[in-house]
Amino acid sequence: MHTPERPPQPQPPPEGHDSGNPPDRRSFLARASSMGMIAGLGASYGTAGLYAARYLYPSKPRDKAWMFVARIADVAVGGSLRYTTPGGEKVALARQGSAGTVEDFVALSSTCPHLGCQVHWESQNQRFFCPCHNGAFDKSGKGISGPPGDAGQSLPRYPLRVEGGLLYIEVPTESLEVADASAPREGHDPCLDGGAPL
């Protein structure tokens, strides 16, 4: 009976054979498996880290809604009114044109664009003033001194919309509990021209 000859088997290299030579199959496999393990660990822990970062990052933007402000016919050209958002933030709103479109109106936020403090109107100085870092804004909301003036920042403006002769404003609807909950905070202030002049 003929027994087929087995092909010659590769001989294992002697000890220390791989020094200075290209890696043989065994050391290549050892390195490849080490690299694979490191890559696997990196990928898995990296994914877990990304999940953790995504978990900590806010999952949705601040809730906002369009709110009714006034009939545009009730706001005289050159006049202003004060509006308070559902969250309690005061908005200085003014009419600067007579076209009857949204371009006639501006709505200034009272949040300083520098570092987020609340500005207030100083009638004696005819300016909005931020007590945190001495930022000042003119009646149109343009920064005139302090860090906002240096950086050319203005008070942020709220988006407005006019529909069927009615003026709407888009404002945040979430709020933190405020110190004096009994004070009226929400909705349209009926005192036209009673707020900060613009």
Binding site: H120, C130, P131, A179
Partner: peptide, 13 residues
């Protein structure tokens, strides 16, 4: 001090 009021920054901070 007075409780936080997110709508009003104190005059001196």
């Amino acid at each position: 001090g007075p409780k936080a009021d997110p709508l009003s920054t104190p005059e001196v901070i």
